[in-house]
Design a protein around this nucleic acid. Structure first.
Lengths: 369, 369
DNA sequence: CTGTTAGCGCTTTCAT
DNA sequence: ATGAAAGCGCTAACAG
């Protein structure tokens, strides 16, 4: 919004005395660049095999030898070359995550929380995390997956925002590559997933809106074929039908899943002959946009039009009026995704695993329920 | 804030007919699990070397042979095993990023934007991104770095929030491992960095506060020895001194870099005998906490007490009153970090590179300047 | 132009 | 209890 004032850039080597120079003990934390098993073996006059086994903790090494190897390895600062190990073991102990970063001002609050959940759990399970970013519009999305899968850079993949006919899911199935999705997809067999029950969540919200007297209830849906949108719409229709209320197709508006999208969508709804008195948005950003559109028309969310979001991002309780929303426990979802995928990788899982979490309705000011 | 209602969890295999089953063309996108150079070579009756060179685009392969190899490779669905290639080439073409995810409700808006910048640039430069997460309190922080460096999992590292005597920087220097930092550190030689000139930024802000009539100006600083805090404090002191204003040490309050920290810190300041009329916070979250503390005392940020944040997170323009803040162009910073690091890795850089960006003052309601 | 040879650093039979 | 040998899949120096 702020006109982008060009910031002054200085690219140069700053003088050494520009600011206080603190000396670190150049310490004898030796450099010891490149210690291989072989180096230890040669030093000790044993074979590489023995060193390898001693370090791996096999029991067919003489205690005395093991001690010696262990000590020497520490002394020499040995650290295994993970790449070599991966090649030999034919696995990477790494989990892949492809995230479509939406341009410069991307900062999906859900994402960092998901990453935290996945990452922490992965570390706990002894797995590394590999993150590939890509602009979602660029069609080399599959390219990124191909790289991870075919290049054997990871052992398993987490797919994050499932779409209705998800090529990524299709690809991974074809490749018979281990993966788990956040969100269901149109294929459910042989696919592990974690999801939040948006269908039921929205159904419940709509029912509570109806109970509160609302009859004209609209949906601000994403303009992409996202799986969660499809399911939530089903919940919406079911609730309306259950109460004998007609669903006017013009009440279902599809816009980008952004604040601006919500703004546009709400504007559109307000221009209808019979504008809705309540709106369920695809996510909190859209809901916030909708609130803003109402304000610009002199209306107030909560009293004039009820607005419900989805996700409960940190911002939700800060906007005015604060946002009534369906909360998704993203951090926990991240942990579950990782946990279940690891179970599959370790073959602890007999078949695909499914985990359906219920969203929690957080009632605030934008919709009194 | 909301009492954590236990969400209902269902972990089970959902029936296959639970929802519409869409058939994907089982397509002949064959599985072709494991095609090696050798497989192509054998099929064609040439040597592995020839195949490798043809694929790599060397010019010492007969055009006819090259064509044949290329076609066969495509037919057989060949994709190089990246691990093997890494081992042989002795490089990974991967950049590492260690992020300290602060617990469950972590969602640093800056982080996702930084990641987007780094990731997109990395992809453009032909590099992969490796992300390690860890809880910051756990002292195995260095462990994570050691793994990346000594395990040779990455070629270079981006260190993100420099501290005053940064062990990570020290470690990487000792290891003579290529890296770049976001934020300066107490060592500047041989270290490449990108930073935002918080010293000058804060100095300017304080001067404008003084020009607006403020005399009692406080700082809400982080309670950790972060490098940026040290530098900004210097800017603050300089501005005060330049105008002959005393700096009361009680005006510099150190609290966690969170909304709550800002809240606590502001409360503390309000209890002083001479409370400040203006506050410069360590980041936007702290500033928001400060605003809240003011509200709880019946005061209003902007009119009663001026509050200035730092970063310009998306939330900043949404809070009430909206936040006056110093904007950091995080996405661009991510790109620069990646760009400069890659230059170092490619040895295009003669020495360490430094890039100092000026923050942009965004004036909103919380401090009229 | 192409093939032979020699690894990258590690793990893992299989003998001894 | 230890070592020799055989790779994991790829690249690259060196002959021819």
């Amino acid at each position: 919004m702020t006109p982008g004032e060009v910031s002054f850039i200085l690219e140069a080597t700053v003088s050494k005395t520009f600011w206080k120079q603190e000396k670190f003990a150049a310490g004898r934390g030796a450099p010891m660049g490149e210690v291989r098993l072989r180096d230890i073996a040669e030093r000790l006059g044993v074979s590489v095999t023995t060193v390898s086994r001693a370090l791996a903790g096999y029991n067919d090494v003489a205690p005395k030898t093991r001690q010696l190897v262990l000590r020497t390895a520490r002394e020499m600062g040995y650290y295994p070359n993970l790449t070599a190990r991966q090649l030999q073991r034919r696995r990477t102990d790494t989990i892949g995550l492809v995230v479509d970063v939406t341009g410069p001002r991307f900062s999906d609050p859900l994402f960092s929380e998901l990453l935290a959940g996945v990452g922490n759990r992965a570390a706990r399970e002894g797995f590394d995390l590999f993150v590939a970013t890509m602009l979602p519009d660029t069609d080399d999305e599959l390219q990124a997956y191909r790289r991870l899968v075919r290049g054997r850079r990871v052992d398993g993949i987490i797919v994050v925002r499932t779409r209705v006919a998800d090529r990524r899911v299709q690809f991974l199935l074809e490749q018979q590559f281990p993966f788990i999705t956040f969100g269901r997809s149109t294929i459910t067999d042989h696919v592990s997933w974690v999801d939040v029950d948006g269908e039921r969540g929205v159904q419940m919200v709509v029912e509570r809106l109806i109970a509160a007297g609302h009859r004209h209830i609209a949906m601000l849906q994403p303009d992409l074929p996202l799986m969660f949108a499809l399911l939530r719409e089903r919940g919406y229709r079911r609730a309306m039908r259950a109460h004998g209320l007609p669903v006017k197709e013009t009440w279902i508006v599809r816009r980008p899943l952004t604040e601006d999208g919500g703004y546009q969508g709400m504007q559109h709804l307000l221009r209808l002959r019979t504008p809705p008195t309540a709106v369920v948005a695809g996510n909190d950003q859209m809901a916030i946009g909708a609130i803003r559109a109402l304000q610009d028309r002199g209306l107030r969310a909560g009293s004039d039009v009820a607005v419900v979001g989805f996700d409960d991002i940190p911002l939700a309780r800060h906007v005015h009026p604060s946002l009534t929303t369906l909360r998704q426990p993203i951090y926990e979802i991240g942990q579950h995704l990782c946990r279940l995928l690891v179970a599959v990788l370790r073959r602890e899982a007999d078949g695909p695993r499914h985990l359906l979490l219920q969203p929690e309705l957080i009632v605030r000011e934008s919709a009194r329920l």
